[in-house]
């Protein structure tokens, strides 16, 4: 009896394993083919230049953050460690830890800086994603997130040297004051971050933060958005004319967000 049962269990196990893995193999084959047929890289690279002086205005920073978070249904989590942020403000000393020294004036160290995803040219986060849920879009260089595919392993958060990624530790909906119905919220267990307002770029707009900054008094030119690959774009011209820095260039990630000192 035990003899028969063991043989039966063995065969059934092998059959189940075989039958179960077939669709997996087929799907894996399909997506491998997809990877192989990816279009040529970066025809364009969206980038942002932030003017630190103009961003000293608290109302300007507030306007940018609120516009972004309202546009994307970003929740305000009560627990600080569960905070979700696409764009936010950090002291200069924390953002540019490798640019300050013992004699840097406190005023500089504490100067607030707007930070967001850098949409790097060599992103550390997309490299580690095990499912391709985050990837660098070839057409315009945006580091995208596919919330439908993300398994919530948070490897990208460990890999990002800028702390630009947030995770939905719980269902975010109860913490969104005014849900904007034409933009999705997120579900618990997925990672999210700034995507340079891909939905606005698609219809010819500019990112919400850029628009909001320009609408504040004295905010013209605080945030300049454009194509880094185009030498005539406003961002390219600014980068030629001004002294700019970017975050942690020594890591080789190649940020697309720059700061005018």
């Amino acid at each position: 009896m035990s003899e028969c049962r063991r043989t039966f269990l063995k065969r059934a196990g092998c059959a189940a394993l075989g039958a179960g893995s077939l669709p997996l193999l087929a799907a894996a084959g399909r997506s491998m083919a997809e990877i192989a047929s990816q279009p040529a890289p970066a025809a364009k690279q969206w980038g942002l230049v932030v003017d630190l002086k103009k961003c000293r205005s608290a109302s300007l920073r507030q306007a940018c953050i609120e516009a972004c978070h309202a546009a994307h249904n970003v929740p305000s989590m009560p627990e600080p460690r569960q905070k979700i942020e696409w764009i936010w403000s950090e002291p200069f000393g924390a953002v540019f830890g490798d640019q300050i020294h013992a004699r840097t004036p406190d005023q500089r160290k504490t100067e607030p800086v707007l930070v967001l995803c850098n949409h790097c040219s060599q992103p550390a986060c997309t490299k580690v994603c095990p499912t391709g849920a985050t990837w660098k879009r070839a057409a315009d260089g945006i580091v995208m997130m596919d919330m439908h595919r993300c398994i919530g392993c948070r490897y990208c958060m460990a890999a990002c040297p800028y702390g630009a990624r947030s995770f939905n530790w719980q269902d975010p909906r109860p913490y969104i004051a005014n849900i904007r119905p034409d933009y999705p919220t997120r579900t618990k267990g997925v990672v999210e971050k700034c995507d340079f307002c891909a939905e606005r770029l698609r219809t010819g707009g500019v990112p919400a933060c850029v628009e909001a900054a320009a609408s504040v008094a004295g905010g013209a030119g605080a945030l300049t958005f454009g194509d880094l690959a185009d030498p005539q774009s406003a961002v390219s011209q600014l980068l030629r004319q001004q002294d700019t820095i970017c975050r942690r260039p020594s890591l080789g990630t190649g940020p697309s967000v720059f700061y005018i000192l």
């Binding site: 025809a43 057409a139 315009d140 770029l201 010819g204």
Partner: peptide, 8 residues
């Protein structure tokens, strides 16, 4: 199609 100059 709203031609926006976007290459997408």
């Amino acid at each position: 199609d709203s031609g926006t100059g976007s290459r997408i």
